[in-house]
Nucleic acid binder design. Structure first.
Lengths: 143, 143
DNA sequence: ATTATACTTGCAACTCAGTTGAATCTGCAT
DNA sequence: ATGCAGATTCAACTGAGTTGCAAGTATAAT
């Protein structure tokens, strides 16, 4: 998940004012190798500057509604966020029952499944989330 | 989701003591046409008898760990619970962005997708959740 | 029957992840 | 400079679930 996207342009395209904080949210997510919790995003931004958590939550929410981010519901209480720009297409996720870590999987299977599900559902559906769960490599080695 | 399952036997098979409350949880879920939130389960049991919410949460948690129930993470904060017995095999779900309702879909597509994903992941994975999202029929008609 | 034990349920207080509403600050247009 | 809209902050709140411990209940041992 390297950041190849032009974030200022992405924001401008949405008619959203480009602010330092909004860019910071996108940059943090663009640099992360996996989907992040709001709390993690907050801490990463705080390594650089002062921020209020409410602002970050509002930005995440706004971006998600605009389709700039995807919000993933996972086994834990906190949701995860990931970029939804053209360089970060939807993909399945793998979550470890043991440590809770969520990894991104290749997008390919999702596309095939999407085609398969979309038929029966007609045009009612606009999004598919696939979460596979099990025990990850690290956790398996430990036991 | 009619209840064809012998709940007392199901519990006994797990070495779990059969209590009125545990049966009530299974019966409520067995009678429901869709996955339910803990809050809903609580209210449905309360229509019949007095219960403490902690007890219900503990039962749901215990049953989920034992594999008697599946817990679904959805767009909203509260998770949903559904029976995981042989008459209620895993299946995809459809959630409406607008009203939040979650419907159960046919199990068939899930099985095919499972086969497809499990290959690349090896035997690390033991569960697949597919959540399709869009706008449901009712909500679409209203707008 | 009586006591001991383990398991189940209940209660109060708490945590965690967000949310709300109102106040303040900032950049831009007049 | 002044006004305004939008961005950010702050404090307080909500809702869903959790924790620790007390009380109740069933089963087993005496």
């Amino acid at each position: 998940m390297s950041d190849l996207c032009d974030f200022p342009r992405l924001l401008a395209g949405q008619g959203v004012k480009v602010t330092a904080l909004r860019l910071a949210v996108l940059e943090v997510l663009g640099a992360a190798p996996r989907a992040l919790r709001a709390q993690e995003i907050l801490e990463m931004i705080r390594a650089r500057r002062r921020v209020n958590k409410v602002t970050v939550y509002r930005i995440l929410d706004d971006f998600t509604r605009r389709g700039l981010l995807r919000r993933l519901a996972v086994e834990d209480r906190a949701s995860l966020y990931e970029l939804a720009c053209e360089h970060h297409p939807p993909h399945p996720h793998f979550q470890c029952h043991h440590c809770g870590q969520v990894q991104c999987l290749e997008p390919a299977p999702l596309e095939r499944m999407w085609a398969e599900l979309k038929g029966p559902l007609g045009n009612r559906a606009d999004r598919i989330d696939i979460r596979v769960a099990g025990v990850c490599h690290k956790c398996r080695e430990m036991s």
